[in-house]
Amino acid sequence: MTAISRVAGSIVDARPWIRAWEAVAERDGLRRLLLVLPTLVVLLVLFVAPLTAILRLSLLDPAPTARHYLEVVTNPTYLHVLGITFETAALVTLLCLALGYPLAYVMATVPGRLAGVLIILVIVPFWISVLVRTYAWMVMLGRGGLVNTLLLRLGVVEEPLRLMHNFVGVLVGMTHVLLPFAVLPMYSVMKNIDRDLLRAAENLGANRWQSFRRVFFPLSLLGVVSAAALVFVSALGFFITPALLGGPRDVLLSMLIERQVNDLTNWGFGSALAVVLLGLTLLVLIVFRRFLGTAAWGSVVEGR
C-alpha cells in the first residue's frame, strides 16, 4: 500500500498529502512505542528478570544440574501432585462449563435490561476478594454451616457431613470462584450470534430445540472452548481456595511450590516446580491460543 501510493504519488504527483500523512503515521508508530517504554522497563525489571532468576535457580544450585527436574518426574509423590492438579483443573473446568452455559445462554437471550442486571450479578462476585469468597464457603460448608444445618433440619442426614477440608470442598470453592471466567467469554460469543440464522432455521421448519442444537450451539462452541481454556489455565495455578478448602491429601502444584519456598526454603526445587507450572500454563495457552485472544481476557476483566 505504501509502495503503491508512493508510485502513484510520484507518477501523478497530485496527492502529496498522502505521503505527508504516511510519514506522520510512521513517526507516530515509533512515538507510540515510546509510550509503552516505561511499562516495558517496569515489567522487564519486576517481572521478566525475576522469572529468569527463578529459571536459573532451578538449573544452578549452585552447579548446573537437572536433578530438581528429574526429581519432579521420577518421584511418585510429585507425579501424584501433578496428576491431582490436572484432575482438579479438568473437573473444575467441566463443572464451570456445565453451570456457565445455561447462565450465559439466558444472559444472551433475555431482553437487554434484564441481561444488564444478570451481567452485574456475575461481575460483582468476580471482583470480590477470592479470600473472602473462599472464607464464605468455609462458613457455608463447615460442621455448623448453612448446608449442614439445612440437611440436618430436613432430616436428610443425621450427622453433619464432612464437606470441606477434602476434595469436595476444593471442587465447590474453585467452581464458585472460576464460574465468571466461564460465563463471560461464552456470553460475549453468544450475544454476537446472528439472530437471522435462527429465524431462518425456524422459517425452514426447525423447532426451537432443533434450531438451538443445529445452529445456536455449534456457533456458541467458540465461546465454550475459549471459556474452557480460560478456566483450565486459571485452575492449574490456583492457590488460595484449594489451600483453605482442601484436606491434607489435596495438595496442588501451587501449594507444593509455596511449601518448598516458604516452609522449607528449598529454592532450587521450588523454582523447578514453578518452572514446570509455568511451562504447563504456557503449553495450554499455546494449544488454545486461537481461542484466547485479548477479547476473552477483556470479556472477563470488563464484563462486556
Binding site: 525475576p50 527463578i54 492449574l236 490456583f238 492457590f239 519456598v261 521450588g270 523454582s271 514453578a274 507450572l277
Partner: peptide, 13 residues
Amino acid sequence: IIPVIITAIAIYF
C-alpha cells in the same frame, strides 16, 4: 495470565 504463585516467589527472591 501466569499463576500468581510463580510471580510471587520470583518477586520475593
